[in-house]
Computed example of a mutant assay.
Amino acid sequence: MRRHRTAASILLAVGALFAGGLVNAGAAHAAPADGRSPAIRTASLAEQSKARSFWTAERMRGAAPLDLLLTREAAKSLKTPESDGRSATVVPGAAPAAFPQAGGPWTGGGAVVSTSGRVFFTFQGRTASCSGNAVTSQNASTVITAGHCVKYQGSWHTDWVFVPAYDNGNAPHGQWTATKTLTTPQWEASEDINHDIGAAVVAPLNGRTLTSVVGAQGLQFNGGYNKQMYAFGFPAASPYDGTKLIYCSGNSSRDFLFSQDHSLACNMTGGSSGGPWFTGFDEATGTGLQVSVNSFGYTFLPNRMFGPYFGDVAKALYDKAQVS
């Protein structure tokens, strides 16, 4: 999760279905108004081969949350549409439970345990991590994450793998290597925080597709605001260490400050970026409809998480990924 700073103040930077499931669209899906297509990067066969052998247990344990790496070097500034021209410095951060929950280990089991996972990649020569989630798709191989977890500061990440059900250096369902990574045209062009959404298409492993092994969560687009939400991720910055699936739950609201994003009380930290937000989540089965990802927070609201609204732009990204 990322935390932002503004000029005025400090600002930080389904039911789930298994392979072959449905997508709940909520409303009619027009193409993005500006007509731009999602940005896509294809990993060469040599890159894919390297990634398969690169991520040892030791390297996974040692990968710093991307958000923490950028915090250390004071990330560059960007402008958001609602900031009236003021710049925002992005410093990426971010028992079945009682509802609400501001942050704690998920012990409820269910599908979310296997569909959620850690994302590992190389960012400008350094090993780094985020979170992600396997979703229902035509190719049965699509992962949804944050935009800054596939591309940041002008660079596409390399050695990109998804490790569902990550367990302290262990990969119980294997490491799934990206053949393609994608992001929204708005994130590609200007790192617009309202569209901090990414996706990856992963190669089959041992002759099987991702969601035939770990299952998949459904998605919802244009579903509106102010809903009961559950957010999941693998935060790896203090007080967390990246070894456990952490969740938050509660009633969400719309950000009233600088973005068009969802807002939820949550104390997840760096490494949680890209983890899924669900509406209609069933604690008994661990399933829901994904409507956002962990993206950012404000430094003056340290226990609040924000995630992009899944509208037509997110739908276009998903549509491109699921057939790639």
Rank of each mutant, 00 (worst) to 15 (best):
D241V: 00
T285I: 11
S114N: 02
S83K: 02
A8R: 01
D67T: 10
N267T: 11
P92Y: 13
A236M: 02
M229Q: 09
R2S: 14
V14A: 15
G223F: 08
L257Y: 10
F300E: 13
A237R: 08
K151W: 11
V23I: 14
T299W: 05
F256C: 05
G274A: 02
E47P: 12
G62W: 00
T115L: 03
P308T: 00
S252R: 05
T145I: 05
T269L: 01
P239I: 13
G275E: 01
L11K: 06
F121L: 02
Y298I: 02
E188P: 05
T42R: 15
G307P: 03
K315Q: 11
L182A: 10
Q175H: 00
V163R: 11
P239A: 12
C266H: 04
S37K: 15
E82I: 04
T107P: 04
D319L: 02
T177I: 02
T127D: 01
K244V: 03
A128L: 07
N133Y: 09
N251S: 11
V313R: 10
K151E: 15
L317G: 05
L182C: 08
L11Q: 04
Q322G: 06
L210S: 12
L12P: 12
G275I: 04
T269R: 11
V214A: 04
E82L: 09
W176C: 02
G93N: 07
S190F: 10
W187A: 05
Q124V: 11
S324H: 06
P38F: 01
G20I: 02
H4S: 08
G117Y: 05
G215S: 08
D241G: 03
A25W: 14
E47F: 12
V23N: 02
